[in-house]
Design a binder for these strands. Structure first.
Length: 328
DNA sequence: AAGACGAAAGTGGTTGA
DNA sequence: TCAACAACTTTCGTCTT
């Protein structure tokens, strides 16, 4: 009984922390109090969850709550635990192959007999040959480490890396790398991973951390998406709003309005074919005017990495087509 | 003086024959 | 593979606040 109580005590402590972290009695899940039935978008860079509609911060300091199961004794723990090395696509053998130590010692640390030693030598040799058997395996290992480097420079979450790795594997399987640079295809796969997960990253940003230029990445991207028959929608401009918004230090109100404008523009068919960053920039600009938190076209254009002219053009279209009132 | 606006010419990429 | 095309950029002059 005492034992049971102490376990429950432990559980209660962790739950108390959780409630505290949620903030002042806000909703526990990712629903927004303003816009009903919306999902929160996780912004892993700033470690927050924001509402996809209005940009309001729903939850801060996203944390790992640990396993979703509870165990009350050792036996249950063993049964329920699904631990062990996780399988991952970001290591060329998916992290599942056996590793053989290079020391000539046995489990107790004793030296091995000459026969055992030569056996281990042969095993290691085969292990090497199996793991990194040929050029394709070596290239795969290189590409994956390259993608890992780029995504950590861009601060991309793990799921993007996994998807990028998966796409790259698909490209290898279909022999699409031949005659193309590994780095180009790796960068393209990473970009595709961002598109797939709606991570607001532009081709330019990928190119900045890549060793190959934008054109090469773009070519590889088009090629592999065509050959693998993956159709990725362009990134929703609304996803850029929170990024640009925080760089411009605008309020949640402006962000909410900007997202609203983008939605209207989308309905008015003003978004297709246009660059999502330009649309996001113009929407933020209009929203900042309407809310009296004026930002210049220059400032907005700069964070969105487009020119003032583009902001103006989008802005003009918005005003004409959506009959927005910006005379305030 | 700074910002907004618009015209004109140039660039890189897409599309369809 | 080539030309037509739309989106976007660069540059620069004018207007507004």
């Amino acid at each position: 009984m005492e034992l049971k109580e102490s376990i429950f005590k432990g559980v209660n402590i962790s739950e108390a922390e959780e409630v505290k972290a949620e903030g002042e009695g806000e909703n526990a899940d990712d629903g927004c109090p303003n816009c009903r039935d919306t999902n929160g978008i996780r912004d892993y860079q700033r470690n927050i969850v924001i509402c996809e509609k209005c940009g309001r911060v729903l939850r801060e300091k996203i944390k790992d709550r640990g396993p979703e199961w509870r165990a009350f004794d050792q036996k249950q723990r063993e049964e329920r635990s699904r631990g062990g090395s996780p399988m991952t696509y970001t290591i060329h053998d998916k992290g599942l192959s056996t590793k053989i130590d290079w020391k000539n010692r046995d489990g107790r640390g004793n030296n091995l007999s000459p026969e055992r030693r030569s056996l281990m030598y042969r095993l290691r040799k085969w292990q090497r040959r199996i793991r990194i058997s040929d050029a394709t395996e070596r290239n795969l290992a290189f590409a994956l480490s390259e993608m890992d480097r780029m995504s950590s420079q861009l601060g991309l979450p793990k799921n993007v890396r996994e998807i990028a790795a998966l796409i790259y594997r698909g490209a290898v399987k279909k022999e699409l790398i031949r005659g193309r640079s590994i780095e180009g295809v790796a960068s393209a796969a990473l970009y595709a991973g961002c598109r797939e997960t709606q991570m607001p990253r532009t081709l330019e940003e990928i190119a900045e951390v890549s060793r190959v230029d934008k054109r090469e990445i773009g070519r590889s991207y088009r090629f592999i998406t065509r050959e693998l028959e993956i159709h990725l929608p362009p990134i929703d401009p609304a996803n850029y709003v929170s990024r640009f918004g925080s760089e411009l230090e605008i309020s949640g109100e402006v962000r909410r309005k900007a997202i609203e404008i983008i939605k209207k523009a989308h309905e008015g068919k003003l978004t297709s074919g246009r660059g999502p960053t330009g649309i996001a920039a113009a929407a933020i600009y209009v929203a900042s005017l309407e809310c009296g938190e004026r930002r210049t076209q220059r400032e907005v254009a700069e964070v969105a990495r487009v020119t003032e002219v583009t902001v103006r053009n989008r802005y003009k279209e918005f005003v004409e087509e959506l009959s927005l009132d910006v005379s305030v």
